[in-house]
Design a protein around this nucleic acid. Sequence first.
DNA 1: TCGTTTAATTAGTATTTTCGATTATGATAA
DNA 2: TTATCATAATCGAAAATACTAATTAAACGA
Lengths: 304, 304
Amino acid sequence: MSKLPSLKNLSYLLALHQHQNFNRAATACNVSQSTLSSGIQNLEEQLGCQLIERDHKSFLFTGMGEEVVEQARRILTSTEELLYFAQSQGKTMEGPLRIGCIPTIAPFLLGDLSKKLQRDYPNLQLNIREDTTTNLLHLLRNGELDVLVLALPIDIQGNQSYVLGRDPFKLVMHKTLAEKLEEPVQYNKLPDNSIFLLEKEHCLTGHAVAACELADSSKINPFTATSLHSLVQMADAGLGATFLPQMAIDRGILNGTDLVALKPTGKEASRDIGLVYRPTTNRRQTFRRFAEVVAQLLPEPLLE
Amino acid sequence: MSKLPSLKNLSYLLALHQHQNFNRAATACNVSQSTLSSGIQNLEEQLGCQLIERDHKSFLFTGMGEEVVEQARRILTSTEELLYFAQSQGKTMEGPLRIGCIPTIAPFLLGDLSKKLQRDYPNLQLNIREDTTTNLLHLLRNGELDVLVLALPIDIQGNQSYVLGRDPFKLVMHKTLAEKLEEPVQYNKLPDNSIFLLEKEHCLTGHAVAACELADSSKINPFTATSLHSLVQMADAGLGATFLPQMAIDRGILNGTDLVALKPTGKEASRDIGLVYRPTTNRRQTFRRFAEVVAQLLPEPLLE
DNA sequence: TCGTTTAATTAGTATTTTCGATTATGATAA
DNA sequence: TTATCATAATCGAAAATACTAATTAAACGA
């Protein structure tokens, strides 16, 4: 069996991929350009295939090169995790914690969360990324994030997860519109096209439609918003109603508006908030503790 | 950030864990005992924690040492996979393929399968392990196997899977017992304690009970068998009936007996045969092609 | 007590890695 | 056109490291 590529050379490859320039990559690695250059050549020789195409002056990663980069990133991440795990003697709630969170949770959770975590666990270094579910899962897979706070259920693609709590949906509309309605609101009392939702990239939309038994799509306005705040503004302008998560309402998203929140139809009109992490992690203890802290900030904590 | 541990030292640690002896481990690594010894010490220093307890003469892995071994095994496996992937230029159906298979599938599949694979893909080196579902999943996780052929549904623990085909259950009994029965067999026509099953370690048992709607446990004999062949012998001796997968019957497990196979109750009286692999694999193409070959050998192939 | 087996240690050697300087190539500006 | 700049590859010397053989020290069994 031929010799394994060295982690050092793999990290050179990653740096080169990131900086797309030998000198800058070398600087980032704290080595000379020649070291990095020969490291890459070495790697290509060991792997027996071309990773980058050199066309004098510049270069380009080959398809294989890109694949190797992906794989190498995972290997290096695992090794870094091993190192950190051992160095911290497996202690919980220490070291960097890279959290991914979706846009319909992040603004209503992370403020209080990071305040609390920084107070109670000063050795925990938080690093937060807000993005769509799909992108976050990709970053998790590649080891660029440690743990995700998402709305479930979703396809977690080979990761592990558990539910932290429930976040009820409320039907939000201008108070003048709400006057003649009683809870739970029957959607057929609403005019057609009067319910506004987020773009379908946001899982909130799907979850709300499912949980609130909003089968009658004629009530849904085809115009979609890009954020909860624009939904609020549209509703406040009297254009119609919308669904908002209780979390957002609790953090005052309706303050200064003339909107009221009503209970919608659907006996489980809520979304689940859950934690997702790689099955190969060695930080389950930390994630568990983290989960408990997050759960305390949810409208309906649900953690055995 | 401190320096990453080297793959070499990690492999020394794995060898030591495997051989539990510095000399033998060193020999296995093709290095001298002193090299391995200092490699381990080096590693302990880098990781900043004790991995093995030395009590003069002998040694013992610490808890942390065991954890590090687990993690290191994954890292090395990934790196080996990367190496092989690159060296084979990502070609499919080449190189070693380490297959795990359960005892109620293996004997009726692997003969034909390996013959076929060796003929069509001479560059594929098969390596087959037969064990229980639980053990196979553990070996898969640790990178000691590449792909599993199992009966689904089961908890695949963060792995990925798909179904290859269906394998119907048949109720097998002595022909004299079968004379007065009609298909599908109503279990209440059978005497109490007359159905023999495998030990509960075999998932076949659970699958059969569920799929064949065998709720009435008074029919099940508490004595359990350890292999399908002993079930056959017990049934042939007239002790009672049993469930066998169609695969086994097709490969002639009833030859030379006075047993007949009847259709049992249950509108989906069958188990699914599926493939399981790590989500981080880079050999999906190979697994897919492999799956197609396996599917062709199943009673009811089911692969889109 | 002596010989055996074990892992750690030591000192010398071999190998690998790294750097700085240099070269070669193309792009850009004068 | 020529000079200048930026890029990546190459080369030889220096530094760091990995490795070995021989030795030590401790434990065990005959």
